[in-house]
Design a binder for these strands. Structure first.
Lengths: 219, 219
DNA sequence: CGTCTCCTTGAGTTAACTCAACGTACGTGG
DNA sequence: CCACGTACGTTGAGTTAACTCAAGGAGACG
């Protein structure tokens, strides 16, 4: 088990390679992308401090996505063999990683739903709400570091960069948000939530179950 | 543990309800959908014989999607408490369910990618390839029961039913496939795979790892 | 001071959508 | 056995959200 520092834009996990290490993101941010033959990309997950990178890969043995830092990041890495030994000793760890896998799948399901059924503006609004929720530090500040370029946002939302830019400007002119060089300001939280039809239930599960199981869990 | 028969179109798991049972689909087919406020739906998973329904929910404690049979289905259901007792005894079961969760997440990631980055025709072609692969019985037949209406296909691919119909007809006229009352015929497998840019790797993981771990696994 | 990456804007195009009507198969009850 | 209802599929016509291509700004950095 060793901490490891990655610079901005560094690849932490490569696509289609068997994986040897487990990574816990301690600080920074990262994104998992799938690259297609024609060169286009789809971002399938965004990892923030505290997240496990692609937990499902541990049990699948390889990664189908490549994971890259968005900003410099500190990760804790553990050799897979050591981790499995640890899990044998403490099943709660396996259970925790399983839960993390399920949680990330739930987020993906949400993305899938919005991609399939909502307009560009609603998708963007929803993603921003998700970030705000996940980054919320307890204080009521509405300013966040959003370490994604417009290109990357577009690749996350299944849009072209040009169109994303236009949608962004519409939201700026509507005084919902402001986004400047990686700094997101939410000007009208209620308005944004309304546009996004945001319901944080899919994210809250983690906390709810966590506490429920701390008292009643078996493992 | 008890087998249970569901009719066509019956709801097996309800949205936003805490779940009490684990379901293994023995025969038939089902789909998991998320319904939005405006009434539109997105299908986020399709389950075929042998699949576990929403394994991630076991560890999250509730379901964010509702799961409905597409055709009559026989499921094996186990009370969650019993299952957890079983997992305590045999960690391999937990591991298996974790893997199932990861595998379904991998499929979802694939869907997400295609939804975000590919045309309607390619998406449809890809979904059909996925079905053909998952339903493949070993024989080389290219005729399958596809228990989805055009409406449901559209809801899976993030398209309108009208547009899906048109895409379907284009593929019919190109002699790639035929689809009639739930019966899919693949007329030109190579052509279809090419349009879809289909690579079954994301599905094959399950088998590959299965055998790898049967020999070298710890649990 | 040039160069690179990111952002912005304009103009034209197109894939996919909506609405609305009509066709077709199937099952049910009179 | 036929008439009717319903669910699914098909077609037409018009609209629009999002795309592509292409060019021009604006910081950041060596």
């Amino acid at each position: 088990m060793q901490p490891r520092q990655f610079g901005k834009g560094e690849v932490m996990v490569e696509e289609d390679k068997p994986l040897s290490s487990f990574f816990l993101l301690c600080s920074g941010a990262a994104r998992a992308t799938r690259t297609l033959e024609d060169g286009s990309q789809q971002v399938v997950a965004i990892f923030l401090a505290g997240d496990v990178l692609n937990p499902g890969n541990l049990v699948l043995g390889r990664s189908r996505v490549s994971t890259t830092t968005l900003i410099p990041a500190l990760v804790l890495s553990i050799q897979v063999v050591d981790l499995f030994a640890l899990m044998e000793e403490r099943p709660a760890i396996m259970r925790g990683l399983w839960r993390e896998t399920a949680l990330q799948a739930a987020i993906q399901r949400e993305w899938l739903t919005w991609l399939g059924r909502k307009s560009a503006e609603k998708r963007l609004a929803h993603l921003l709400c998700e970030f705000a929720w996940r980054l919320q530090t307890g204080n009521e500040s509405e300013i966040f570091e959003l370490p994604l370029t417009q290109r990357e946002l577009a690749d996350t939302l299944g849009l072209s960069a040009v169109h994303l830019n236009r949608v962004l400007q519409k939201m700026r002119s509507r005084k919902l948000i402001d986004l400047n060089r990686g700094r997101l300001t939410i000007r009208n939280k209620e308005g944004l939530y309304e546009v996004a039809e945001f319901d944080s239930a899919y994210l809250e599960i983690s906390n709810a179950v966590q506490s429920r199981e701390d008292t009643g869990g078996r493992l």
